[in-house]
């Protein structure tokens, strides 16, 4: 029940976007609006996924960790949609141009890098993969923080003049990163 509701909640932004697209209420440039929205929701859920272990530890609330994988997979789903729409609307599936964009433009490179990391993490999130990776699974999945750093810079590079949103995301991302680093240090000194 809770699991179904969780998935529904995570799908909700996508459903609203799909409805807005169909009813033509995304404004004058719906392609761009959709790319921005899928990007921002990738970011939102990425922050949620990183917030879950913090909340779980602080409030002794292990049950929330059961949903971490579900949220993580949705992060990848939104990221993939974001990337696919960019490929389709902005590059017209021209993979030569994609290669040029990746080498020429740091924001595309960082976005692509973040997506690759998320793809690697999503594909190693199946039960057999977790089993097979064993003790290496955990260090591999701390790369989600590298994806976060890429995403933060990716967003900061989009600024033309107004910096309020990207900086807010960078600040929250930085907080979560600091908490993780503090915990890593604590784990090291404890041993």
């Amino acid at each position: 029940m809770i699991r179904t509701l969780t998935h529904l909640g995570l799908a909700l932004p996508a459903l609203v976007m799909a409805y807005a697209w169909r009813s033509q209420s995304l404004g004058v440039d719906p392609q761009k609006a959709l790319i921005l929205e899928t990007g921002i929701w990738t970011f939102n859920l990425l922050l949620v996924v990183l917030f879950l272990p913090v909340a779980s530890r602080w409030a002794h609330w292990p049950v929330v960790l059961k949903y971490r994988r579900a949220v993580g997979l949705w992060v990848f789903a939104y990221a993939t949609t974001h990337f696919t729409l960019f490929l389709s609307f902005y590059l017209g599936w021209d993979f030569v141009r994609l290669a040029e964009e990746i080498t020429d433009r740091p924001y595309v490179l960082l976005g692509f890098g973040a997506w690759l990391i998320l793809a690697a993490l999503a594909s190693t999130s199946t039960r057999p993969a977790i089993k097979k990776l064993g003790r290496r699974w955990k260090p591999l999945h701390t790369f989600v923080y590298l994806a976060l750093v890429c995403a933060v810079i990716h967003y900061l590079l989009m600024i033309r003049s107004d910096w309020s949103w990207p900086v807010a995301y960078a600040a929250i991302g930085l907080c979560l990163l600091m908490l993780r680093l503090r915990r890593a240090r604590w784990l090291r000194t404890r041993n």
Binding site: Q24, G92, R105
Partner: peptide
């Protein structure tokens, strides 16, 4: 190019529903 994107093409906005590259 603009440092962050190509200027080789443009998205011609004809209306809320029609955009052409």
């Amino acid at each position: 190019s603009h440092p962050r994107w190509s200027q080789a093409t443009e998205r011609r906005i004809w209306s809320e529903t029609e955009v052409e590259r």
